[in-house]
């Protein structure tokens, strides 16, 4: 997913891992990857499918927020 990598270039504090789910079944299982692309942010917020830039950013802000753990 292109957005994640561009966000990593934009901000020092953002790391973007692109994971080939089929080659890492344990990781895919741990994050319950049923469909791809699946995005997991800070182990707190996750979504399936590609999101537009603004919604992707909102997901990041939810993931770093101090609020209660959001529903997955």
């Amino acid at each position: 997913m292109r957005l994640a990598q561009h966000m990593a270039v934009a901000a020092k504090d953002v790391r973007a891992d692109c994971i080939e789910a089929g080659e890492f079944p344990e990781l895919a299982q741990r994050y319950r990857v049923m469909a791809v692309p699946k995005v997991v942010i800070n182990d707190r917020v996750e979504f399936e499918g590609a999101l537009p830039e603004r919604e992707f950013l909102q997901a990041i802000l939810r993931a770093v927020g101090d609020g209660p753990e959001p529903a997955a």
């Binding site: 994640a4 901000a11 953002v14 891992d17 800070n42 990041i60």
Partner: peptide, 11 residues
């Protein structure tokens, strides 16, 4: 950003 962000994209 208030803290580091780790984005994992499964594909």
């Amino acid at each position: 950003l208030a803290r580091p962000v780790h984005i994992q994209v499964f594909s």
